[in-house]
């Protein structure tokens, strides 16, 4: 059902946890729907230097969280905003069709974290 890469990110998720002094926090989903993600970022000179997550959800939701935090790190905010659900799914060597919304969740949580960072600076 899942690719080896997705399973690797599920069983050995990268960047799990909170960032106490995060510059931006994005939340997406809710437990009623079965998946909820909280994504924390640190930003320096318009570049995401650190990203962490907490996720309630299936194997795919956890793997997406892990992958998107990896993808976001080192990117400028503009580059990070260009990450789509398709690019996350591709990075995980594909996802079953019924799980694509999990991938959406990751991209949306990241976008919200960036928006949160920008609104704090505004």
């Amino acid at each position: 059902m899942y690719s080896a890469k997705l399973m690797d990110h599920f069983t050995n998720p990268r960047n799990v946890g909170e960032i106490a002094d995060a510059d931006g926090v994005g939340m997406e989903g809710n437990p009623t729907c079965g998946d909820a993600m909280k994504l924390f970022i640190k930003v320096q000179d318009n570049v995401i230097t650190e990203a962490k997550f907490q996720t309630f959800g299936c194997g795919a939701a956890i793997a997406v969280s892990s992958m998107i935090t990896e993808m976001a790190k080192g990117k400028t905010l503009e580059e990070a905003l260009a990450i789509t659900k398709e690019s996350v799914a591709d990075a995980l060597d594909g996802m079953p069709p019924q799980k694509m919304h999990c991938s959406n969740l990751g991209a949306d949580a990241l976008r919200k974290a960036i928006e949160d960072y920008r609104s704090r600076r505004a």
């Binding site: 939340m27 989903g29 809710n30 729907c33 919304h101």
Partner: peptide, 23 residues
């Protein structure tokens, strides 16, 4: 350990204004 709810319970995301839209 990965879940946003484990420490503070089910309200963890609502309290901070987490969105309530469906996935």
């Amino acid at each position: 350990d990965m879940s946003p709810f484990a420490k503070e319970g089910w309200g963890a995301m609502e309290a901070e204004g987490g969105n309530k839209e469906g996935a």
